[in-house]
Simulated assay, not measured.
Amino acid sequence: MLSPALYRTRIAHRRAAPVEYAFRHRSYCWYVDIDDLPTLPRWLRPFARFDARDHLAGKPGDSLRDRVDAVLSGHGLDVSGGTVTALLQARVLGYVFNPLSLYWCHDAGGTVRHVIAEVHNTYGGRHAYVLSGDGRLATVAKAFYVSPFNDVSGRYLITAPLPAETLEVTITLLRNDQPPFVAAMRGDRLPVSAAQLLRLQVVAPLAPLVAAVAIRRHGIALWLRKVPVVPRHEKAGLR
């Protein structure tokens, strides 16, 4: 079983059109084996609670493994075998927001065969992209409405290798005749301990809520700069 870890992360977004705009913020996330989620002392659990309902689609009572298996089988992929490790946010004081969660699906021999990249938007929607290979380089058509300033055209170029001492994830949105939009997450691995988790509550308090607020704040900044808004319409294929 994987020993759980924390990553102190640096998150950056950069767009070049129709206006230049970039922002950075710091946060943290968990790296876990989904079949062996951390068990914390009772007094620490308000700062890190793992609930399968917060991740992927599924039925009431499903485990996180059930939900990962359902995503893979829905794509006609073999779900038998090995470990699934995940990079995600836990609930903090009852709140969770996972803009991006990653699941590395290993075969019985320990090789990563598929990566699931789940995206959440601030409207309460979620979408799971399934990538073949080990995550070092993959492309997938965009199929989910995330930002009111981007429609669902284009493709994502994703680099998400298995985390080690450092974490490096980059997602680039590519469209014809447009400069790319780039989001990146970098992080340094930290051991899980009560002291470390409490320290993170000081340097990054209420991290999931802060991330959700930051996305809305930067959206308002783009709107004030008169960046065109793309309506969220199901009939237009925006989900």
Rank of each mutant, 00 (worst) to 15 (best):
His13Leu: 08
Leu198Phe: 11
Val229Asn: 03
Phe47Gly: 05
Ser132Phe: 01
Pro179Leu: 09
Ser3His: 10
Leu167Ala: 08
Leu137Trp: 00
Tyr129Asn: 09
Tyr21Thr: 04
Gln196Gly: 11
Tyr95Lys: 08
His75Ile: 01
Thr9Cys: 15
Ala204Leu: 00
Arg199Gln: 13
Arg26Ser: 14
Arg155Tyr: 06
Ala5Gln: 12
Leu200Asn: 10
Val203Lys: 03
Asp36Cys: 08
Ala108Gly: 05
Arg216His: 15
Ala138Pro: 07
Val192Lys: 05
Ser80Trp: 02
Val119Ser: 03
Val210Ile: 09
Ala108Val: 13
Leu137Cys: 01
Leu87Ser: 05
Ile220Val: 15
Leu222Gln: 06
Tyr21Pro: 00
Tyr31Gly: 01
Pro163Ala: 07
Arg14Ile: 03
Pro163Ser: 10
Gly219Val: 05
Tyr129Ala: 06
Arg91Cys: 02
Ser73Gly: 00
His55Val: 11
Ala70Thr: 13
Gly76Cys: 07
Glu118Lys: 09
Arg15Trp: 05
Ser63Asn: 06
Leu157Cys: 11
Thr111Cys: 02
Leu44Asp: 08
Leu6Ser: 08
Thr170Pro: 01
Leu190Val: 04
Ala204Phe: 04
Pro191Lys: 08
Phe181Thr: 15
Ala211Glu: 03
Ala48His: 09
Val92Met: 03
Arg15Ser: 06
Gly81Met: 04
Pro163His: 12
Ala183His: 05
